[in-house]
Computed example of a mutant assay.
Amino acid sequence: MNDEEKLTKIRALELWDKNLIDNIEVGTFKGLQEIHRYLFQDIFDFAGEIRKLNISKGNFRFTPILFLTENLKIIDKMNDKTFDEILDKYVEMNVAHPFREGNGRSMRIWLDILLKQRLGRCVDWSKIDKFSYLSAMERSPVNSLELKFLLKTALTDDIQNREVYIRGIQASYEYEGMSRYDIGDM
């Protein structure tokens, strides 16, 4: 049996160590697809593919498949020059939830690439409490101010630091309840 956490953390390290992250299209669904496909290529036969099922989490229903492709085109056209615009785009991509599994982990890498290119900053995810983040994300479709405040306080300009990236991947997986493997030991 494949171990999703271990295999995808290895792939996340490869994105950085092989400089693949520098070749990903920034701020687009295509770029998010590239990240998802690479991370989950060993796990899901649908890696990088738009979901064909309606999905929900708790009481929240993500964008219905009937509207998903069109919504992704709209998200691609959203402005993403300022921090607030970037976070608005991130929130909308989360509402779309284009993949069956692995959206959060892929989208956090996607967000950091976008922040790095546009603002010369990224989120130090290790500074963000899991429950604060998940609560802010849950409320973000209605009001994103809490999420923006939370992420803004954890921004760093240390964007070329591999350790910041590694800590971010580890935290990202912990948000999803995956902490069996420490990425620093891989």
Rank of each mutant, 00 (worst) to 15 (best):
L150I: 13
F67P: 01
E25Y: 00
R180H: 14
Q41W: 05
S106V: 03
L151R: 11
D129F: 08
I113Y: 00
I65T: 15
F40Q: 04
F131G: 10
L155Y: 04
V26I: 14
Y133H: 15
N19A: 07
M107E: 11
I75L: 04
M186T: 08
F149W: 09
Y90K: 00
D157W: 04
E163D: 15
Y38E: 10
K6G: 01
S126L: 02
L119A: 05
D80N: 11
K18M: 01
S172L: 06
D124M: 00
F60V: 14
R37D: 13
P98R: 04
E70C: 00
K18V: 00
E101S: 11
L68G: 01
I166F: 10
G120V: 11
K148P: 08
F46M: 02
S172C: 14
K130P: 08
N54S: 12
G31S: 00
N79I: 00
F67S: 11
E138T: 15
H97Q: 09
D22Y: 01
V142H: 12
R108K: 09
Y165P: 07
E85Q: 15
T153Q: 14
R118L: 08
I183C: 04
W125P: 11
D45T: 14
V142K: 15
L15D: 00
M186P: 04
F149K: 15
T8W: 02
V164S: 04
Q170R: 05
N161G: 10
Y133C: 12
I128V: 15
M78P: 01
L15N: 02
T153M: 11
A136Y: 09
Q160S: 13
E25I: 02
T8A: 02
T69E: 15
V164E: 03
R37I: 03
D45M: 09
Y181E: 10
D157V: 08
K89I: 07
L119T: 10
I24G: 00
L155R: 07
L53I: 15
L20G: 05
A96E: 06
I169E: 10
E70M: 04
K81Q: 06
N59Q: 09
L7T: 01
V142E: 15
R51H: 08
D158W: 05
Y175R: 08
A12I: 04
E70W: 02
W125I: 12
L111D: 03
V95A: 13
L151C: 07
L115V: 10
G58E: 12
K57I: 12
S56V: 02
I75Q: 01
G58C: 10
N79L: 05
R61Y: 08
A136I: 12
D182F: 07
A47N: 01
H36P: 09
D42R: 11
Q170G: 08
L111S: 03
A96S: 07
I183S: 03
I128S: 03
R139G: 15
P98K: 06
R139P: 06
E49R: 12
R51M: 07
R37S: 14
S132Y: 05
Q160C: 04
K6A: 13
L134V: 13
Q41H: 13
G120K: 09
L87T: 04
D42A: 11
L147P: 10
W110Q: 09
E70D: 09
R139T: 13
V95I: 14
M178F: 13
V164L: 08
T156M: 10
G120Y: 05
D129R: 14
D185I: 12
S106M: 03
N79A: 13
